[in-house]
Amino acid sequence: MLLAGEQWAARFEEFQREAWRLETLPQYLMPQESEELQEFRDGTRIDPATVHNEYTDRLRRQATQGRLQGRVHIVTRPLAEYLRFEFAWYYAPHSLAGERIRILDVTDRPNPLDGVQDFWMFDHSEVVLMNYEPDGRQINREVFEGDPAKFIEYQRIAISESVSFEEYVTGFDL
């Protein structure tokens, strides 16, 4: 089953304990980000502590309810322009709002999750495969029909092999 619109948004309102994502690509070409990406390219910088929008408000609300959202992004250095943008404009404010973001840098070591595609997992019971073109253009979101056990293991590996976003960016000029 493919997910879009309200069905997709409902996953983030209905999970009980945890929504978690694995990101594997160096860029995601999302049309709704094009203006902000251009501002970043033009040198505009933001103060992550002052970002308040629907997404950060939801993260804060969920955190007070004990409902956690997290992710691990697999990266290699040098960081792609998109990753520098994502770190500054999204990860920094989202982390401050309560999202548990971690970075798995595989620049100088084998990728323990090589070949695993992007996915979201909700409450360790539902997995949604995030299907992308190689350049980061989204194709669709597809509910995985099967046992989520391997995705739970992917999450375990990703978390154990990664560092917190805050630790990773220490010394970076976001």
Results as ranks from 00 to 15, higher is better:
Thr56Gln: 04
Arg11Tyr: 01
Asn131Asp: 13
Lys150Asn: 07
Asp118Thr: 06
Asp114Gln: 14
Ser164Ile: 03
Val128Phe: 06
Gly171His: 08
Glu142Met: 08
Pro48Gly: 10
Asp173Val: 13
Gln7Met: 05
Arg100Glu: 15
Thr24Trp: 09
Arg102Thr: 11
Ile101His: 06
Arg77Cys: 01
Asp42Gln: 11
Tyr28Phe: 13
Pro148Cys: 10
Leu59Ile: 05
Ile101Ala: 05
Ile101Lys: 07
Arg61Leu: 13
Ser162Arg: 09
Val127Arg: 05
Ser125Thr: 15
Phe119Ala: 04
Ala49Lys: 12
Ala80Asp: 14
Ser164Cys: 11
Ala97Leu: 05
Ala88Glu: 15
Leu96Tyr: 08
Ala63Ile: 07
Glu86His: 08
Ala19Asp: 04
Val51Trp: 02
Leu29Gly: 02
Ala4Phe: 12
Asp108Phe: 07
Ala49Arg: 14
Asp135Pro: 00
Phe151Val: 06
Ala10Ile: 00
Asp135Gln: 14
Asn131Ala: 08
Arg61Val: 13
Asn53Ser: 13
Arg67Leu: 02
Met30Asp: 15
Trp120Gly: 08
His52Val: 15
Gly70Trp: 02
Glu33Ser: 04
Thr56Ile: 11
Gln32Trp: 11
Ile101Glu: 01
Phe119Met: 01
Val163Arg: 07
Gln117Lys: 10
Met1Leu: 09
Pro110Met: 06
Gln69Trp: 02
Pro148Gly: 11
Ala88His: 14
Ala88Tyr: 08
Glu6Ala: 14
Gly115Ala: 09
